[in-house]
Design a protein around this nucleic acid. Structure first.
Lengths: 339, 339
DNA sequence: TTGTACGCGTTATCAA
DNA sequence: TTGATAACGCGTACAA
């Protein structure tokens, strides 16, 4: 026997299918007589009836499904973020469809098509480079959406970002309070808004103390690129006592080179990361970094999307999530540095 | 204007909707005249037609959707596994619906209902404790499914597991080759098959050298439980020179206690983990562990599921994925140990 | 090779 | 408060 449908329930309860539908639907449940309500419930229970979400979606034009587009699930900032989105949406009956683009534009377009084809009710997008295809695609799609972490200039849309300037300021202030003056900076790819904001904030905060020769721009937020940038700093003529990075992954590369060159952190230089990804507290020394509440960011994104889903269009809101510095062993007073 | 449907395409191409359907469907495309084929394609392209997957699913009773049930996405073994599943399925047009149960039985039941309700074509289950609700639920559901990592005695189903015995044997052999004889073991929760298999293999491999007093069983694969177990070992009267753990997370707890008690690894004891989760190579010392090809495990699971999806029922197959030992700094010859 | 007719399971609208 | 009817968009027998 195949899975029971609404007709089966109705037949067993001796009512018309539409009555059974009303009885079983929380929204319309109040419209139906208490007596028949019980009969329908009993029938549904005895048959083990489970509503067919596909059929419902076809009729209602809503799938209670949300697409989430990320670069790569194995980037450690995403698992907690995804959980945050899911936790925020689950209580309202929404399910998340995840798509990993691997930073591939073609793949991003395909993913977008798949999600559209599956009739997602909304979209959470965490892959917005400055010329991301999805920005163009969503422009006409007029689908409720929220940009996450990365935003695009000129695209008016809801977004949840972290306070990159605040994080960078706190990092600079922290190493300065330890007496550091010659501060190097390893920035992220400048086609992505968080990397741009962090670098901009660094320059601004450094003010007169800024030395452009101590800035490196990495083409990706990766360990390898972090290592490459740090080698370049070490091989330059300019000395420094502290290194700030735009991401924990870049900082990992710095650790690698530290070993490679037989240097010592924080004896030879202090180091600050960004994100407080899991496990960076286990490094030796533990990484001083900027803690980003990834789960909370996901929850905020789900809230912003839910508002659009429930209340329809509205003017774009941007939520800027505050961050804080977590001090660990990788930063120390400049006195200990050999400069 | 709302999104174009097949009727719109047909109208524009001057053909009947069913002809347009055939033209646009790869399966039936060959049945249609080349001329009309072009007209339909042109019409579809100019309208930006995207098939409605919901309507198609209702008709075909297939959603090209697969449910994947895991305990928690933030457990580092899952992101690469999920990617493996997605990568394996994506090329065949399948999308993954993820559900995190947090090891909560009630939540697992709800997730299962949601996935069923959404008419998933198959299920990949990585939450099978010995009395998992889902085992019971899937028994009658007769849905193509694959168990992952964890299996349940008495449930006949396809599964992909890792070779826990092989991994454990390699761990034992490795520390023995370094001269260790008194080997402690921190096992995982015994309601889960991988933990059972690893502990069993440990006892077997140790043979006459086994000392039951050097075994601890943790109620969860967690850092805290690992720490607790290691403290208990240290506080016992029985000495040891090596500690094997059933999981990297348990091993992390051992690192914590090592610091806490001012011990040194590998000077005071050698340590071996299990899984080779990302970042354990960055610990000090790097963790010697058993490398599990998580991505590959996901890919294998997708293969096994695809077979069922394409060819229907078949007798249950179990794929046992081999593992290998990765030597790092946490293990050293017993001579260096102070016993 | 194309058109006709129908139904997948549900809910919205209208009438009773 | 309930029943009748139709439709969401598509695919597939069957007939032409």
């Amino acid at each position: 026997m195949s899975t029971p449908t609404l007709r089966d329930v109705a037949a067993r309860a001796g009512v018309h299918p539409s009555t059974a539908s009303r009885a079983l639907n929380p929204e319309t449940r109040s419209l139906v007589n208490v007596g028949t309500l019980r009969r329908v419930d009993a029938a549904a229970a005895s048959l083990g009836y489970k509503p067919n979400a596909i059929a419902r979606s076809l009729r209602t034009r809503r799938t209670s499904t949300v697409g989430m587009v990320i670069p790569d699930l194995t980037n450690p900032i995403f698992p907690p973020t995804v959980r945050g989105v899911e936790d925020g949406l689950a209580q309202f009956g929404y399910t998340v469809l995840l798509a990993n683009t691997d930073n591939d534009d073609a793949r991003e377009e395909r993913d977008f098509d798949v999600l559209r084809s599956r009739q997602v009710d909304g979209l959470i997008i965490a892959t917005a480079t400055h010329n991301t295809p999805i920005a163009r695609l969503t422009a006409d799609a007029s689908l409720p959406m929220v940009f996450l972490y990365d935003v695009v200039d000129g695209i008016e849309a809801h977004s949840v970002v972290i306070d990159n300037a605040m994080g960078t300021r706190k990092a600079v202030a922290h190493v300065r309070s330890l007496g550091h003056q010659d501060i190097a900076y390893i920035a992220g790819p400048q086609d992505r808004s968080p990397a741009v904001e962090r670098l901009h904030a660094f320059r601004q905060e450094m003010g007169a103390g800024l030395n452009e020769d101590l800035i490196r721009i990495s083409p990706a937020f990766s360990e390898d690129e972090g290592a490459e940038a740090f080698r370049s700093l070490l091989d330059s003529d300019h000395s420094f006592t502290a290194v700030l990075t735009a991401s924990d992954l870049l900082a990992l590369g710095v650790y690698d080179v530290t070993t490679e060159r037989a240097l010592s952190c924080p004896d030879d230089f202090s180091l600050v990361g960004f994100h407080d990804v899991s496990f960076v507290d286990k490094l030796s020394p533990g990484l001083t970094t900027i803690r980003v509440p990834h789960h909370q960011v996901g929850v905020e994104a789900s809230r912003l999307l839910l508002e659009q889903l429930r209340e329809g269009e509205s003017y774009p809101i941007q939520i800027r999530v505050p961050v804080q510095l977590v001090q660990r062993g990788s930063t120390a007073p400049v006195g200990r540095n050999r400069s």
